Computed example of a mutant assay.
Amino acid sequence: MQADFFAKRRRNSIVFLALLLLVTFVAIVITEYDVEKGFTSIPKAVTWSFSNFYPNEQSWTRLPDILVKLQETVLISIAAASVASLFALLFAIFGSETTGINGFTRKVTRMIATLFRNIDVSAWAMILLFSFGQSALTGYFALFFGSFGFLTRAFTETIDEVSSSSVEALQATGASYFSIIFQSVIPSCIPQIISWILFMIETNIRSATLIGILTGTGIGFAFSLYYKNLNYHAASLVVLVVVFAILVIENVSNYIRREIL
């Protein structure tokens, strides 16, 4: 029986790989992609990067302005994740199988969270451009909606996994709904919730760079401006600053996770 199981998995894997190769081949034919040219252009791209895409002495004079843009991006990312986490926690409580009031509220909150989660932040930015134009508010709301959808799903799963046994115990003692939420659910989920918020802040900072290109704000706009003006040295400095900021924030968030988990 075990041999049949592994044979079936092997067949499924072969079928999947065959379908993947077929889809890849069809995509190459439709897009008229030149595979040989694509691979042979890699050395040229690397050579060009080392020859042009690096900070020079003049680009370093723009560092203060770049840091101001970075600060704007980081603050918007943190604000969007923090505020979204409050709304996400409320929706997660109503959408959880453990703490949901009834099946209707659970279904509605899950549908709303799924809708917001499945629309990418860049799509949100383009939608919101019609309402708010190219402004920091557009970037904020795009990150907020994306964060809200993701965190609602994450918080819902956290509540279902962490607090189910304690909720059942309190319900057996006749505790009120709000007592269960504030004395059991939230305290037991706080470490995981903080961890998810930190992860969302990291993700938002990465996404905010792309969002800034669309909304004309933050570090993304600075990169777009330098790159379009063919100032590749300054654009490369922007990339280095973003990478450094992401590494610092990731190390800080990892340290906080180790302390609280």
Rank of each mutant, 00 (worst) to 15 (best):
G103M: 00
M1K: 14
I119P: 01
T203S: 07
A113T: 02
L214H: 06
I213K: 07
Q71R: 15
W60L: 07
A88Q: 07
I205F: 08
I246R: 06
S13H: 07
P64W: 05
F91D: 01
R11L: 14
C189N: 11
S122F: 15
S253V: 07
V239P: 02
L129P: 15
A45F: 03
I112G: 00
A172H: 03
S77N: 02
I193L: 15
L137T: 13
I66S: 05
R11W: 13
K107Y: 00
I159N: 08
S163G: 13
E57M: 14
L247Y: 02
I101K: 00
T31D: 12
K44P: 14
L75C: 04
T158M: 03
T24C: 05
W124V: 03
A172K: 01
E259Y: 14
G149F: 01
E168Y: 10
V241K: 15
V35L: 06
E250M: 03
T152K: 01
L143C: 11
D34C: 10
F50H: 13
I66C: 08
T158N: 05
S77F: 08
E161R: 13
L86C: 13
V238M: 03
G146H: 02
S184P: 05
V241T: 05
F148K: 02
F94M: 01
W48E: 09
L115T: 08
L67S: 07
I246M: 10
V23F: 10
V23N: 15
V241G: 08
A7K: 09
G146Q: 06
I66G: 05
E32Q: 13
V241E: 10
V108P: 00
A175R: 15
T217C: 12
P55I: 02
T173N: 04
L115H: 05
T217P: 12
A234P: 02
L230D: 11
A92E: 00
I28F: 10
I181G: 03
S195M: 15
Q183L: 12
P64C: 11
L19T: 13
F155G: 09
I256Y: 02
F182I: 11
I78D: 07
T152D: 00
Y227T: 04
R62C: 05
V83D: 01
G38R: 01
W196D: 06
T98N: 00
L170Y: 15
F155S: 01
L128A: 02
